[in-house]
Amino acid sequence: MAAAAAAGAGPEMVRGQVFDVGPRYTNLSYIGEGAYGMVCSAYDNVNKVRVAIKKISPFEHQTYCQRTLREIKILLRFRHENIIGINDIIRAPTIEQMKDVYIVQDLMETDLYKLLKTQHLSNDHICYFLYQILRGLKYIHSANVLHRDLKPSNLLLNTTCDLKICDFGLARVADPDHDHTGFLTEYVATRWYRAPEIMLNSKGYTKSIDIWSVGCILAEMLSNRPIFPGKHYLDQLNHILGILGSPSQEDLNCIINLKARNYLLSLPHKNKVPWNRLFPNADSKALDLLDKMLTFNPHKRIEVEQALAHPYLEQYYDPSDEPIAEAPFKFDMELDDLPKEKLKELIFEETARFQPGYRS
Rank of each mutant, 00 (worst) to 15 (best):
Q105V: 15
N158G: 10
T63S: 14
V188Q: 05
K292P: 07
L137E: 07
N82H: 08
A143Y: 11
G10W: 14
K117R: 06
Y317K: 04
T351N: 10
Y25I: 08
L75Q: 15
I240H: 07
S360H: 11
S153N: 11
L170M: 13
N224A: 05
K285Q: 12
H180F: 08
N281M: 04
K55N: 15
I84H: 07
N45V: 13
D332F: 07
I126E: 11
D88N: 13
K300H: 08
I86N: 13
L130W: 03
F354D: 14
D149E: 12
Y139L: 07
C127S: 15
C40M: 11
A174Y: 11
K342V: 07
R225P: 03
G136N: 01
H80V: 08
K151E: 09
R15C: 03
L290P: 12
V21S: 07
V46A: 08
D337S: 05
K270L: 11
L137T: 12
D210L: 09
R359P: 10
V188S: 09
I74Y: 05
G32E: 12
I53F: 14
P311Q: 07
G230I: 01
I227M: 08
L294T: 09
P23V: 04
L287D: 00
L343Q: 15
A327M: 08
E345P: 02
Y25H: 07
K73N: 14
I84E: 02
P339S: 13
I255D: 06
T26W: 07
W212Q: 04
F331R: 02
D175T: 07
M293L: 14
A6V: 11
D332A: 11
I211L: 06
D179H: 08
D44N: 13
D88L: 03
P274E: 07
L200F: 08
I95A: 05
K164Q: 02
H125E: 05
D337V: 13
Q249A: 11
L155E: 06
H269A: 03
G136A: 02
K114Q: 11
P323R: 01
A286M: 02
L289H: 03
H299Y: 14
G230T: 00
D210M: 04
D332N: 13
E60N: 13
L267G: 01
K270R: 04
N27P: 03
R91T: 02
T118C: 07
K203C: 12
G34F: 00
W192T: 08
K114W: 04
P268Q: 10
L170V: 00
A189Y: 06
P11K: 13
A189S: 14
R24F: 01
R15S: 15
I302G: 04
A327R: 05
W212I: 08
C127V: 09
K231M: 14
I227E: 01
K300D: 06
E71H: 03
L112T: 07
Q249V: 07
A52R: 06
S208F: 10
L346M: 14
Y25C: 00
L308A: 08
H180N: 15
G169M: 03
L244W: 06
Y128E: 01
P152C: 04
T190I: 08
I324V: 00
A3S: 14
L222T: 03
P176F: 06
I255L: 13
Y233L: 09
D100S: 11
L218M: 15
A7C: 02
L234V: 10
D288A: 10
L121V: 04
A282N: 02
L289W: 02
P196D: 09
L335I: 10
L252V: 03
I240E: 02
L308N: 00
I83M: 00
C254V: 05
F354G: 11
I217Q: 04
H299G: 03
M199I: 14
K55W: 02
L289R: 07
I126M: 05
A35C: 12
T206V: 05
R172W: 03
L237Y: 06
D100Y: 15
D318V: 13
T160V: 11
K99G: 08
P280T: 15
A219S: 14
A174F: 06
L267H: 00
E109C: 04
N87V: 08
E12I: 07
P356D: 06
L130Q: 14
V49A: 00
H61R: 11
V49N: 10
D100Q: 12
Q119A: 13
Y30D: 07
M293R: 09
N238Y: 14
R79M: 09
E341P: 13
K151Q: 14
K259V: 05
I83S: 02
Y358E: 10
Q119G: 05
V14G: 15
W275M: 12
H147D: 07
A307F: 00
E81K: 13
M108G: 05
C65R: 13
A282W: 02
K344V: 09
L241K: 09
H141D: 06
S142Y: 01
H178Q: 12
E220K: 11
P328G: 08
L294N: 05
I89L: 05
E322N: 00
D291Y: 13
A171R: 09
A189I: 04
L69I: 03
Y187W: 03
P23C: 00
A171W: 00
A352Q: 08
Q236P: 01
L28N: 05
I347S: 14
I255V: 01
M38L: 15
I103H: 06
F348P: 04
D149K: 04
D162T: 05
T68L: 15
L76W: 00
N82W: 07
E12M: 00
P196T: 15
L264G: 01
R50C: 07
N82Y: 14
F329W: 03
K164H: 02
D283T: 02
L157A: 04
Q66L: 15
K285F: 10
K300A: 11
L146S: 04
Y193N: 15
L237R: 04
Y316L: 06
N45F: 11
L294S: 09
C127N: 03
E197V: 13
Q119C: 04
F19W: 10
Y312V: 01
C216T: 05
A143C: 09
D20V: 13
C40I: 13
V14I: 10
R24G: 13
F19V: 14
L146F: 05
L278G: 06
I31H: 15
R91L: 14
C216S: 14
K259F: 11
Q236L: 14
A286L: 08
G357H: 04
T181K: 09
D337Q: 06
L335M: 12
D124W: 00
P268M: 01
G8V: 15
I56L: 14
A171F: 03
E345D: 15
Y30N: 14
Y316H: 00
L218H: 05
E81I: 03
D100I: 08
I53K: 01
L155H: 03
V21G: 06
L252M: 14
G245D: 12
I126D: 02
M108W: 03
G215H: 08
A2F: 03
I217N: 15
A9N: 05
D283G: 02
L28H: 01
D288G: 00
K231G: 10
G242K: 12
Y25E: 02
A35S: 15
L258V: 12
R359T: 09
Y102Q: 10
R191Y: 01
Y205Q: 04
W212N: 04
A174E: 12
M108R: 04
D318I: 08
D337M: 03
V214M: 10
Y30S: 11
T94H: 10
I324P: 02
S153F: 03
H147R: 07
P152E: 09
G34I: 02
D44H: 15
L289V: 01
A52F: 12
H310L: 14
L346Q: 14
A2L: 01
L264A: 06
E350D: 15
L107A: 08
P274I: 03
K207D: 06
A307N: 00
L234E: 04
C65L: 14
A2D: 11
V273E: 15
I165C: 02
I140E: 05
T185E: 08
P328M: 03
Q97V: 11
L28S: 05
F331S: 05
S41M: 13
L290K: 02
I83A: 00
G182Y: 13
R15P: 15
R359V: 05
L290I: 01
K270S: 02
L115F: 00
N281H: 07
T110P: 15
F354Y: 13
P229S: 12
L115I: 00
Y317R: 00
N281K: 12
V173R: 10
L75M: 15
H269I: 09
Q306G: 02
Y263G: 11
K270N: 15
L75D: 11
K55Y: 12
I95W: 10
E71N: 00
L163G: 01
G8H: 10
I227D: 01
D321Q: 03
L335H: 13
P229L: 06
D177R: 10
